[in-house]
Design a protein around this nucleic acid. Structure first.
Lengths: 235, 235
DNA sequence: TAGTGGTCTAGACCACAAA
DNA sequence: TTGTGGTCTAGACCACTAC
């Protein structure tokens, strides 16, 4: 066992911190279970009950998923909670079209977000409902890590990018930070989205990270503010 | 003990549901502790460990707060997470001014939200930073429950309304639902906020409820979209 | 000093999944 | 059949708060 923290902290807290570190270090891929409760407890020299508490905390923090009879697995990120999902879609199924893909020198803000100042891959992506655009996205990916995405057939990327990233590069998005603000449509955005010039758009800026915290993708999505509706519960 | 649920559910789940029902029924005011772990366990005929699990769940759901050596208490709502707090304030301290207070017949949507179709109390409230308005709020309160708020001196309401409600009527806000959307400024709003006509505003609509689920207040807040910035983490 | 919640242990038994 | 997590119990000891 590796003691990562103050020995005055409770056992379950120290164990939690260490296990979290190992998860972030990528010790267990998503398809291989962690050791069982009993094995982990023995390894850390604590009781099974205490280890259960640690695993329970990691579960409610959304880091692992426990399945009875199968084991404990490192979880993928829950992007069903992304702010970009709050553009009203009704019952229609969104489609995706990549309008442009180019190697470019990273603009300053993108270089800052990605933490890599060299060449990056830029995607311009349109999302549609019934062939009607409702979201336009600028996506930046670091090179050479995402070289396979730069050379893949566009059809091969599909409607969902994160599974494509994983398939092509092996890199898995595990967490993200999103920033919501309201802006006015640029001339380009207005043309692509088919809305009036300078009409209000909701803008969601996302930095997506791997388990190790490395930024894998920087994305700026814009859609008509009139379609956006976000609900939250306070308790 | 009252069995509220399917007997096939685990003990901790049934106990949780029943304890939740009693909390919502207002059995324990905010300043009087629940019975101790041991007493509750005995009352429900379960072990202390299982009762601890129930109380742990209620704690992480934000319904109760446990303090070592003192006891377990029903918690107030955590409005520090309100969407309305994401209008940039910098380091300045917000102030509050009530511009208007009137008894009115409830408009249809307000009557629907409050679940009371009779007369309601309407407040028009302005929130300011350095004497500069940044948020305007329409607030509706059901009558006669909030009669004391209708007759109190405006100075007596103070900058924070929820403590005033509790002081004057004994009613405590325990939870809320908030809806965020983007609208354009009405002529009235533009004048009050000092912004251009039809400029984009972020609108937060809130229904605030008591522990029993009764809607105590319906509130619609608007502020300049340019000041709004919301950040969320996905994991 | 008495009473509260917080930590930790040890172990029995059940439900589910895979080989 | 074996191994996994899920439920539930019983009890020891510690840390904090109030009186």
């Amino acid at each position: 066992m590796t003691q990562t923290d103050d020995a005055r902290l409770p056992l379950h807290a120290r164990t939690h911190d260490d296990l979290l570190r190992r998860i972030r270090a990528g010790e267990w891929p998503h398809d291989v279970p962690l050791p069982s409760e009993g094995e982990l407890a023995a390894e850390y020299g604590i009781s099974v009950g205490t280890m259960r508490r640690v695993l329970g905390t990691l579960t409610s923090d959304g880091l692992v998923e426990r399945r009875q009879g199968r084991g404990t697995f490192v979880r993928r990120a829950a992007f069903e909670h992304s702010l970009a999902r709050f553009f009203r879609a009704g019952d229609r199924v969104p489609a995706s079209r990549i309008l442009d893909r180019q190697r470019v020198a990273a603009p300053a803000d993108v270089a800052h977000a990605l933490g890599s100042s060299g060449e990056v891959l830029h995607l311009l992506r349109l999302r549609l409902l019934d062939d009607e655009p409702y979201l336009v996205e600028d996506i930046w990916l670091p090179l050479p890590a995402f070289e396979p995405v730069a050379v893949a057939a566009l059809d091969d990327l599909g409607d969902l990018l994160y599974p494509a990233y994983e398939r092509l590069t092996g890199l898995v998005v595990a967490a993200a930070t999103e920033d919501l603000s309201v802006v006015t449509a640029s001339a380009d955005d207005a043309v692509v989205l088919g809305c009036a010039d300078a009409s209000p758009l909701v803008r969601v800026e996302r930095s997506a990270r791997s388990v190790t915290g490395q930024v894998l993708e920087h994305r700026i999505s814009r859609g008509p503010a009139s379609r956006f509706h976000y609900r939250m519960e306070i308790s």
